[in-house]
Amino acid sequence: MSDQSGKHDELVHPAARPFLWLDAKWLKSSMLWILLVLALGFAAIDLFHHRHEYVHVAETPGFYALWGFGSFVLAVMVGWFVIRGFLGREEDYWDGEGDQ
């Protein structure tokens, strides 16, 4: 296996070296807070600016932020518990009789 950080790995592409910080632990641990601040920041704009929408409920402050968060969580949970839970199979499932 290669050097995980890539700093001393000669096989890392020269163009990628300036961006190895993207793999840094501090960035991974702080990404949650960075995104939270950005999401709240854009949601907060609605407090000072009234958006005009075709669908009136979308004019509720922070509507898109709430819908985006809820939709994402719903997609992941349904995918995880319903699709994988009920329909997930071993990788060699189709190697059986029906696929011959």
């Binding site: 999401a39 854009f42 985006g68 994402f72």
Partner: peptide, 17 residues
């Protein structure tokens, strides 16, 4: 603004999960 709200909140949801 609406689109950025949707996408950033969804990105945050990913990081949160």
């Amino acid at each position: 603004v609406g689109q950025m709200q949707l996408l950033l909140a969804a990105l945050f949801a990913f990081a949160f999960l």
